[in-house]
Amino acid sequence: MTEEPYRWLEAIGNRREYVRDQLKGGSPVLAGCLADGILLLGVSRGLGKVFEIHDRHAMAGLGHPADLERIRQAAIDAAHLEAFTRAAEDVSLRRLVGFGLSAQLKQNFEQLFTAPVLGEFVFAELGTTPSRDLLVRVHFDGTYSVQMGGARVVAADPDEESTAQAALEQKWRDSLSLAEAAQQLLETWWLLQTQQTAKEPSPSLEERAAGWRTATAGAQIELGWLNRRSSRLVRYEVLDLNQLLPPPSP
């Protein structure tokens, strides 16, 4: 069937629809650049969503755990080979994604008789200042977009992602404290998870604060932190939400 252009287009369209359908209900992940580093956030039920890639690089993703693992491993392999054969400073997201992952994802997506990658991703690269931080949003079909600084939302539904992205961009400042940033990301996560991104009027501050607390009960909130102020080569740290945003006393 794929010899005919029309059938091929139809098959690709079906495949895209299939992937989006499989990703429905995936827990969103978010990343944001701050004065002291880049914060990545994911909410999971035991399986990881936020990962260290290299000294100044991290990723977060939603989708099938096996596919997240394939992409994570591919990124780690490429970054370590680059750092070993050249230098850690030569590991760059533009090259890692632009010349590596993106092409592999596209090829995988267009191979109709192989299982597609079920995942959506954001990669982060720590720069010397927030405006030099890089956030790369990578889609399951290999398309990607690059932004310097700011914050990035990754959700299964493209429309909800756009709405949440626009709302978060309006509020996001790199001068936010870590606690304030985590709070904003969690509120955005909750709005996406409960499909309230476009709700008018938007839920109040109190509703949002209570909302994400309730929605994350029993879940694991992963906070990855690329620390710009660290003197160590390895900048990635795992933060404890309870220390950043202690639960309200009963």
Partner: peptide, 22 residues
């Protein structure tokens, strides 16, 4: 992405050999 995992999981020397960079 389609390449097999290193013969010994997490072993960087194996990765170098697989990548013909031994």
């Amino acid at each position: 992405m389609s390449t097999p995992a290193t013969p010994l999981a997490g072993d960087f020397v194996s990765l170098l050999q697989r990548s013909q960079m031994a």
